[in-house]
Computed example of a mutant assay.
Amino acid sequence: MAIRVLFPSSSSSSSSFSTAQPTRRTSRLRRGFCCFCSSSTTSSDEVSSSSSMMTVSITGATGFIGRRLVDKLLSEDHKVCVLTRSTSKNKASSVFPASRYPGVTIADKEGDWERCIRDSTGVVNLAGMPISTRWSPEVKKEILQSRVNVTSKVVDHVNTSTSASSNGNGNGPSVFVSATAVGYYGTSETDSFDESSPSGNDYLAHVCREWEGRARQVKQEHVRLVLIRIGVVLGKDGGALAKMIPLFMMFAGGPLGTGTQWFSWIHVDDLVDLIYESLRNPAYTGVINGTAPNPVRLSELCDRLGQVVGRPSWLPVPGLAIKALLGEGATVVLDGQKVLPARATHLGFSYRYPYVRDALKAIIAKQL
């Protein structure tokens, strides 16, 4: 059994905590709460009162997280531009048909990307090849390049648009939210990591540093940069649970390897809210861990999942079997890290699902 870990990543330098006044998240108050305020100490009431419509360009919009983010933005009356490759345009059109998604524009050509980004208020970068697979040298190269190349392309367009805006040609985006991953920190069964922790020394940490390094090339004097280091994303239509739930329903569920590895997770709704808040709230800047405040050991996650679906968690999958299936890629599921969202907590971000049991109950309820 392989868990698909959604892998965003990190930066080559550690971040310091913001000294901005904590602000309450207001995205649950419906309709159009997006704005770009002049002061990072702005209260939530001031943020919502000066709202304006956003236009957001998104890479990776057809993925598990991207689809939910598009739905969130449209539900709040914003507009979306899906940045995709020409070879993937048909998929994007099937995921976001014009009849159901009139607020979505699909851009698959270089000129269309440039135009969309220039006309956007914000850009979100979620693109990247899944990493839960056998890592051949070619696959490892593609894992890295799929993140670095797209990020470089987006950054180039953002920088071009901001240069043009300084010359009076349009406005250009004012915020760039780029996904990275908790793989930045390396792995440990004993240590805890927050945004100030140094990077690890394994392959995934290297990928994250390169990925974030490209994102940091955006002109931060013009564009607010937010790097969200994402943990394992839990949701009903993708990610780890999409592969775990069927096994549990067949009485074949259980922990992978020892089960003692840390599992730093986040419910997809909380992650989407965090990205949305990063777009609209100027207090959100720099590195922010996209994880829930209560990470668990993998054995606990499996026990909780078994309780929620009414099935035992009794059939552990030996580490040797996973290594035989995934090779070096087995590190994604056999090793873990305890990652804490110190920045999000400091900023006053309100989680819908801070505890894994509540997250699993909500997800399973939607499946039934």
Rank of each mutant, 00 (worst) to 15 (best):
D191N: 08
T84P: 10
S12R: 15
E277K: 14
L29E: 11
W211R: 01
P312C: 10
S52T: 06
Y203I: 13
G327H: 12
S10G: 12
F64L: 14
T285Y: 14
I275S: 03
R147K: 07
V158G: 04
K153Q: 09
L340P: 06
G170Y: 10
V233L: 05
S178T: 02
V124K: 14
P22C: 10
V155G: 10
D112C: 04
A292E: 03
L204D: 12
G310H: 00
L126C: 12
I245S: 02
I228M: 14
L73Y: 09
V80F: 06
V232I: 14
T160Y: 07
K153Y: 02
R85M: 01
N125V: 02
G128A: 05
F193I: 00
L83T: 02
R67N: 01
D77R: 15
R134F: 13
Y276R: 08
R100G: 09
A240H: 13
H206T: 02
I364N: 01
S166V: 05
T260Q: 14
T151S: 00
G286W: 05
C81T: 03
I131N: 07
M249V: 09
L83Y: 08
L347A: 15
D303C: 04
R304H: 03
T190M: 07
T162F: 04
V333Y: 00
V233C: 09
T87R: 11
S18L: 10
S51F: 00
G239N: 04
V272C: 15
L368W: 03
S9Q: 03
M244G: 02
N281F: 00
R134Q: 12
L225N: 07
N281A: 08
S161A: 15
D358P: 12
A342L: 11
R25C: 14
N90I: 12
W211P: 01
R115Y: 06
A215R: 13
H222C: 11
G60Y: 02
C208V: 04
A252E: 09
N159V: 12
W113R: 07
V123S: 10
L305K: 09
K366G: 06
I117R: 04
N125C: 01
A127W: 03
T59A: 15
P341Q: 00
R67S: 03
D71Y: 15
V226A: 08
I228A: 05
R118Y: 11
T62M: 07
S197L: 08
L204A: 09
L334I: 10
R357S: 14
A321E: 05
R311W: 02
L6M: 01
